[in-house]
Computed example of a mutant assay.
Amino acid sequence: MRTAGAGPDTAGAGTDGTGADTAGARTGTAAKAGPRRVEAGERGRTTVSDRAVRRIAEHAAREALPPGDVGAVSAKVGRRGGRTGVSVALTLPYRAGVAQSGHRVRRHVARRTAALTGLPVSRPRVRVRGLTPYAGSLPGGPVAAAAPGPAGGPARRPWSERRVPAALVAFLGLSVCATLLYDVVCVRIAGRTAAPWRSRALGWLSSHGPGGFPVALSAAVTLLGAGMVLLALTPGRRRSFAMSTADGRVRATLDRSAAEALVHEAVSGVSGISQVRVRVGRRRARIRAAVEFGDREIAHRQVVTATDQALGACGLGRTPRPRVRVRTAPGWRDPGQRERVGPGSPARPGSGVS
Rank of each mutant, 00 (worst) to 15 (best):
V221S: 09
V270T: 05
A259S: 14
A289P: 01
V73Q: 11
I298K: 04
V169D: 03
L168P: 00
R107M: 05
R55E: 15
R26T: 06
A30Q: 13
R238P: 06
L217Y: 05
A30K: 13
A242F: 04
S137D: 01
A167N: 07
G152T: 06
H264Q: 14
R249E: 15
S345P: 01
P349Q: 13
R348P: 02
G71Y: 01
R284T: 14
G211P: 02
A170K: 07
V143M: 08
L131K: 08
I273K: 01
G17P: 03
G102Y: 01
R198S: 13
M1L: 06
G211I: 03
R238A: 14
V53I: 15
I56P: 07
V121D: 09
R256A: 12
C177R: 09
S160R: 14
V280D: 03
L181S: 07
G315Y: 04
Q337A: 15
R301W: 11
L316C: 10
T193Y: 01
R282G: 14
T222N: 07
P67C: 02
L311K: 09
L92N: 04
A242S: 10
G140Y: 10
R340N: 08
S199G: 12
D334L: 01
H264K: 11
T18W: 15
R157G: 03
V303G: 02
P133D: 00
G212M: 08
G41F: 10
R125S: 10
S354A: 12
D183A: 12
V270H: 02
R2D: 13
L92Q: 05
A57D: 11
